[in-house]
């Protein structure tokens, strides 16, 4: 294999951790332990983990509303993500942001965000600084198929293209924006095709295949790093849950859901690693248990963490005027 064995196993474990994180969140919302809303990325783990695997640690990642996987893949601690979802002081945003508004710049994670498409220009700006400051880093910008309907997407990708910025535009095409199927949202049959409109390369990849995602993102990242500008990567994938916790998915057929579940990214990776002899059934089981343990620990941490102090409500609105 082209990649380091231990690293691959670690990434498989990370995908299990992300899956467990989302499954458990679904329960916690159901029980009313967590309030607000959240968008689960279960089913899309190979995009997050495969794409970030293609980066250097100092590279940057921007996210969207469905960002738990992106954040965990970039090194986010399950404990502090979970605490943020519990609205606790120990969360990444001190409870201020919740699922859709958290970041950790020391990890190169520029943030989840609640405005669809809003982070695409921001990520493009981060790529501009990488270029002007000569950091040698690239930016990986995650967004969904729905976000490509926004003006922000077109305006930012065009600027990324004309200025040949070191950025990878990574579209997780999970076939729906909320209830809106891609076929209703645009006439082109492939999002990657749109790259031509900006004079960029566009590639389509199987978003449920960790190796395919890693390969495609790796090429795009090296293209960007060597001053050749952005690539638009379109990864085909599927979310297992509804859009957010309140969605019953009435707009998807049972057959479609079953077909995609049969191509579950965790299952595909496990089968491949076992077939290659890199993993045994027993080892896979042990990894799944580790993942459960990590998430159980994160919940424990979040439960036992203090609420934010209301006295701090008005702190930190400005950098220079507090």
């Amino acid at each position: 294999m082209k990649y380091d064995h231990d690293e691959i196993i670690e990434h498989y474990r990370l995908m299990l951790v992300i899956r467990r994180f989302e499954d458990v969140l679904d329960q916690l919302f159901g029980e009313g332990v967590i309030v607000g809303t959240s968008h689960f990325c279960a089913g899309q783990e190979a995009c997050a983990v495969g794409a970030v695997a293609a980066l250097r640690p100092s590279d940057l990642v921007s996210s969207n509303h469905r960002g738990h996987g992106h954040f965990l893949a970039k090194g986010g601690e399950p404990r502090r993500l979970m605490a943020e979802l519990f609205g606790k002081a120990t969360g990444y945003a001190g409870g201020r942001g919740g699922s859709q508004h958290m970041a950790e710049f020391s990890l190169g994670f520029l943030g989840t965000h609640g405005i669809t498409g809003g982070m695409i220009p921001v990520a493009t700006g981060a790529a501009l600084s990488q270029k002007l400051l000569n950091t040698g880093n690239v930016v990986l910008c995650f967004f969904g198929d729905g976000a490509t309907g926004s003006g922000a997407f077109h305006e930012a990708v065009n600027m990324g293209a004309i200025w040949e910025l070191p950025i990878v535009y990574f579209c997780e095409n999970n076939l729906y924006a909320m209830s809106m199927p891609v076929a209703e949202a645009f006439k082109v049959t492939s999002i990657a095709e749109r790259a031509a409109a900006y004079g960029l390369p566009g590639v389509v990849v199987d978003g449920n295949d960790y190796f395919a995602v890693r390969e495609a993102t790796g090429e795009a990242a090296e293209h960007a790093r060597s001053a050749h500008g952005p690539t638009l990567v379109e990864a085909h994938t599927y979310r297992h849950y509804g859009h957010s916790k309140s969605d019953d998915c009435g707009y998807r057929s049972a057959e479609e859901e079953a077909a995609w579940r049969a191509r579950d990214p965790l299952k595909l990776m496990r089968e491949r690693l076992i077939a290659e002899g890199s993993l045994t059934e027993a080892a896979a089981e042990a990894l799944a248990q580790e993942a459960e343990q990590i998430i159980a620990d994160a919940i424990e941490f979040a439960r036992n963490s203090p609420d934010p102090d209301p006295e701090t409500l008005c702190d930190g609105v400005f950098a220079d005027f507090d």
Partner: peptide
Amino acid sequence: ASDTPVPASRVLEEAA
């Protein structure tokens, strides 16, 4: 409301 963004955490939101 407080001159801040609206925080997510229930205790902070109630304070805001």
